[in-house]
Design a protein around this nucleic acid. Structure first.
Lengths: 113, 113
DNA sequence: TTTGACCGTTGACTATAGTCCACGGTTTAT
DNA sequence: ATAAACCGTGGACTATAGTCAACGGTCAAA
């Protein structure tokens, strides 16, 4: 499908799709037409972008998404490493929460003065 | 004092001091020498930079620091607005904490599967 | 046929808080 | 006198996740 169709199906802008493409987050992109240089994006990119959006909801960065997508491409039966990635991310978020809590408590002490 | 001295007293790099200077966070900067173009940074900048570091500890941005410093410059007897700025920042941090907690809980649900 | 909708590429810009480099001038110590 | 240490300016670069605009080519419908 062409980029406009992919954009419509995923509700992600063309610019963003091209941005992902430059970051090597997408696959199966070809230029099947000889008379123009339009690209064709394979169907699987719909799912890839959905996965990206899903992972972003858990504050995964795009480069982390790339790692996960690459692993998914490499092994057909996955799930194991994915779980450990989630656990790592969970730890990071716990850490961020506790740091914010410290800042919050310090601020509360200030405001209450 | 010259920038090197200010850097030594505040433990902030010259580059950072110049960066602050460009953002109009510092005051009383002159070029008192006719034979060179060295600048002189007034003593008060030591305190200004200490205030910046203090506010940054509570995740105030530099532009927020500027607002607070400007208010401090404008009114000799301050403290009131400062407290409301702290309260606003506190609210923001509370919000960030609750957002992170939501993400955390969603992640926990995933990992426990 | 011509207009509007689409496509591709390139590059600049957003915000944040700096860091680092090059270039050239000055001051201080040896 | 000369080297090291200092000073100022300008610009580029870091990371993140896009967004926007310009320029030019192409496709579809009226």
């Amino acid at each position: 499908m062409k980029i406009g169709e992919l954009s419509k199906q995923t509700k992600v802008s063309r610019d963003t799709i091209r941005f992902y493409e430059n970051k090597d987050l997408l696959t199966d992109i070809s230029r099947p037409y000889e008379w123009n240089n339009y690209k064709d994006y394979g169907e699987n990119n719909v799912k890839r972008i959905q996965i990206i959006k899903y992972l972003q909801r858990f504050s995964f960065t795009l480069s982390e998404c790339k790692v996960l997508l690459d692993e998914r491409d490499a092994s057909p039966n996955n799930c194991v490493d994915k779980n450990s990635a989630f656990k790592k991310k969970l730890e990071l978020i716990e850490k961020q929460i506790s740091e914010l809590k410290q800042t919050r408590d310090a601020l509360i002490a200030l405001v209450e003065e």
